[in-house]
């Protein structure tokens, strides 16, 4: 039997090696290069091979970097909150109300907008929210407003709306999957033991759905914080987020070590926040049990 297991391992490893090699070459190696660059010195148009922590010092003390980093975190946190809160009732509806035969149709309808061009969707929000955009011109035609509303475009609110729209399906699916896994007899038990409908939801459904909520939050938070298109288009380039900063350091200013240090810092911050979030949730679950 041992030899059977061994041949299983060999066969499995042989099969997995092409995709693994691809991921290592095209993703892991470049990421390690960035990590190495972040500890090197910047010469004019070249990288000097000399170890230094100067880049990190520069990144961590620069007030502009701090502002942009905090803004990225704030926008990402707000987008995550909005998407998850708005998505939960939809996921609940899909899991508990929609009849099983129609579930895949609903899921399909929800995922379609996600698969259509991200760039075009972001641009459309600019068209919708703009000074002479769809909302303003529509409201003017209807005679509701006289002057265009100027608070709609080129600010953090409009970025939050756009991003929340872009990542909505991402939030629904994990919550839906968690809700689907809940054993329905637990809910009946809750009701039989005299809990009200609301209390059953609060004490049974919600804790059991938490893993899905955490997954949804992470899956929205991580790409949002690294978003490049929305600040460039909706923010009008005037309210950059961390991705725009990395791009300008790396390419426009050609300071690769500093840009690398920025990228590594951003990844570290995302990782730390994700871990805190998962840990908090674990604690929350333990208390409730």
């Amino acid at each position: 039997m041992a030899s059977g297991n061994r041949s299983q391992s060999v066969q499995g490893l042989t099969l997995i090696s092409p995709p693994l090699a691809y991921a290592l070459l095209v993703m892991a190696a470049p990421l390690l290069t960035i990590l190495a660059y972040s500890f090197l010195k910047d010469g004019y148009l070249t990288v000097v091979r000399e170890f230094t922590l100067e880049n990190y010092r520069a990144v961590w003390t620069d007030p502009i970097v701090r502002t942009i980093m905090l803004r990225s975190l704030g926008v990402a946190a707000l987008v995550t909150l909005v998407t998850v809160v708005l998505a939960f009732p939809v996921a609940y509806f899909l899991s508990f109300v929609v009849s099983p035969s129609r579930k895949s149709m609903w899921l399909f309808l929800i995922t379609i907008p996600f698969w259509t061009s991200y760039l075009i969707r972001v641009f459309l929000w600019k068209v919708i929210l703009g000074y002479n955009g769809v909302v303003n011109s529509g409201l003017k035609t209807l005679g509701i407003i006289e002057q265009p509303l100027s608070f709609l475009l080129y600010n953090v609110n409009s970025m939050v709306i756009t991003l929340a729209h872009a990542y909505a399906p991402f939030a629904i699916l994990p919550i839906f999957i968690a809700l689907e896994k809940i054993d329905r007899s637990l809910l009946e038990a809750g009701r039989d033991l005299g809990e009200s409908r609301a209390m059953t939801f609060w004490r049974v459904t919600l804790p059991l759905a938490m893993p899905g909520v955490v997954a949804a939050a992470l899956i929205v938070f991580i790409p949002t914080i690294g978003d490049y298109v929305t600040p460039a288009l909706i923010g009008g380039g005037k309210i950059p987020m961390i991705a725009n900063l990395i791009q300008s350091q790396m390419l426009d200013l050609d300071n690769r070590p500093l840009g690398s240090a920025l990228a590594v810092t951003a990844m570290l911050i995302v990782a730390v926040f994700s871990l805190i979030f998962v840990a908090l949730n674990r604690r929350f679950l333990k208390v409730r049990q």
């Binding site: 997995i16 995709p19 693994l20 991921a23 095209v26 993703m27 470049p30 990421l31 290069t33 960035i34 660059y37 992470l218 899956i219 991580i222 790409p223 914080i225 690294g226 978003d227 490049y228 991705a243 990395i246 791009q247 790396m250 690769r256 840009g259 690398s260 990228a263 951003a266 990844m267 995302v270």
Partner: peptide, 18 residues
């Protein structure tokens, strides 16, 4: 292998570009 799903694209593309 699944990591590119959650890695911000800006990080993937910039590191590959460099």
């Amino acid at each position: 292998i699944m990591l590119p799903l959650v890695l911000p694209e800006i990080i993937v593309s910039i590191s590959l570009l460099v």
